[in-house]
Structures are given as structure tokens and as C-alpha cells.
Simulated scan of single mutants.
Amino acid sequence: MKLSIEKTGLKEVQHLRISFLEERKVQFVLNKCHDYGWADIYLFVMDGIKIGYGAVWGSNQRTDRDTIFEFYILEPYLKFAQLVFLRLQMSSGALYIECQSNDSLLASMLYEHAADINTEAILFEDRQETGHAIADVVFRKVVETDQMGSDDSDYVLALKDGIVASGGLMLNYNLPYADIYMQVKAPFRHRGFGSLMVQELKKLAYGLGRVPAARCNINNPVSRATLIKAGFEVCGYRLKGKVKSFS
């Protein structure tokens, strides 16, 4: 058996990435790393056959390329996953592993080969349609007369007194997912505007042919409660750990 780990370009592994995303059927948070050229790609070749790929980026400094964030092997070759992963880590010099808990293959590598594992964010998928409503509140697109300051959101909730919340969709995730973001102005918090905003952004996403998804910091219970109230459900976590020494 001859195994080689070859640094390559995205085009060479695109067919494998398609399989990776189709098999997982979840929003992949770091998909943008490929779109923006933030990743180094490694092709796995065994006895002349392309069996998978890995991707490395810099999770703290993008130029560092010190973190494995994608790891995929075709099903017939999964029995070699441990060997391939260790070879990838040595070839890339990666010091960290970053993954989603709903990506079972890389998560298993994280649990076995990393220490100091931290949960950085909670991932959500849509599970329920909600019917929140607040009198006199309008969900609409931002217009030129809106006083947005440094807020570059595309949509707002407006009362006659002005804007109470803003948000939008991030579309740089793997299709068909759209990531919802929002914020409520301080004087209007804890009054249901956040869940209403999320609810309306969910409708917008579906109208665009997208599947709404969301995430929040692990230390943000208010955001978590808002998303759940708007019909989302926890579907995973973003995890990061430091690669153990193999010496």
C-alpha cells in the first residue's frame, strides 16, 4: 500500500468536496475559506487512487495555515482514516483541529488526537414554523433614509419611533444554506423583537430557495434562547483543540 499526501488546488478535489457536503447535509460554517482562498488543500492518493482530501487554514491568523478544518475520505477507505489523518497532520504541520460536532469523521479525529478541546459556538437548524407578531412592527428592507450608522444590515424591524432591530442573511455558506444574523437595539431588548426578526429572516431565506441556519457563541444564552424561540434547534457545536504530540 502506497499513500501520498499531495498539496493541490481546490479544482482537483472539487468532486470530493461535493460528496463531503452532500453526505453531511448540514450548514458548513467554514465553507467560505475555499471561496476566499484562505485554505491549503491536500489530496490523499492511495495506490494511485484519489481517496479523499484535507484542508488547513489559520483560525486565529488566516495566513498561518495551522488548523485542520476539513477531512474527508471515501467510504471504502475509511478503515485507513487514522493513518491518513496522522500523515496529513505531519505533512501540513497543523497544530490545531477545528470542526463541527455534526461532522462525525473529523470530530472523531479531534477527540482522539487533540487536547484542550473547547466548544466555541452552538449550531442551529430550523425545526419549527413560528407565528410571532408585535403590533405596529414592520419587517422591511433598509432604505436610504434609515439611520444605520456602522450597521450594514440589509433588513430591519421598524416601529413608528424608528428601527428596533436589524439583520440579514449570510450567503457564503454551502448551498442551500443561509446563515441568519441579527441584533436588537438596547432599549428594545427582552421584548420579543429578536425572535420576530429571526422568524422573518427565516421566511426570507425560504423565499430565496435557501434553508435557514444559525449559530451563536457558546457564552451567549440570550441569543440561544432567541433562536430557539424562533423555531431553531441545536444541531451541533463548533469545536477546537490542540494536536497532541506524536513523538
Rank of each mutant, 00 (worst) to 15 (best):
I41Y: 11
Y42T: 05
L43D: 11
L43H: 06
F44I: 02
F44E: 07
V45W: 02
V45G: 10
V45Q: 12
M46E: 07
D47L: 02
G48R: 01
K50W: 01
K50S: 12
K50G: 03
G52W: 01
Y53D: 05
Y53M: 02
G54I: 04
V56F: 02
V56T: 08
W57D: 15
W57F: 15
W57H: 14
W57S: 14
G58A: 07
S59L: 00
N60I: 07
N60F: 08
N60V: 08
N60G: 01
N60R: 08
Q61A: 11
Q61D: 15
T63K: 11
T63N: 13
T63W: 13
D64P: 00
D64Q: 00
D64W: 02
D64M: 02
R65V: 01
R65H: 15
T67V: 02
T67G: 04
T67A: 10
T67Q: 07
I68P: 04
I68V: 15
I68L: 12
F69S: 14
F69R: 01
F69E: 15
F69M: 09
E70T: 04
F71S: 05
Y72K: 02
Y72D: 10
I73Y: 01
I73S: 06
I73D: 09
I73G: 10
I73L: 15
L74K: 13
L74S: 13
L74T: 09
E75T: 11
E75G: 00
E75R: 08
E75C: 00
E75D: 14
P76H: 03
P76T: 03
Y77E: 10
K79Y: 12
K79T: 09
A81P: 01
A81I: 00
A81V: 00
Q82V: 06
Q82N: 15
Q82L: 04
L83N: 06
V84P: 07
V84D: 06
F85S: 03
L86E: 10
R87L: 02
R87Q: 13
R87T: 07
L88I: 03
L88W: 04
Q89D: 06
Q89S: 11
M90R: 14
S91N: 08
S92P: 09
S92D: 08
S92R: 03
S92Q: 06
S92Y: 07
G93R: 08
A94S: 15
A94Q: 09
L95A: 15
L95Y: 08
Y96N: 12
Y96G: 00
I97P: 12
I97M: 14
I97K: 07
E98N: 09
C99V: 02
C99R: 02
C99W: 01
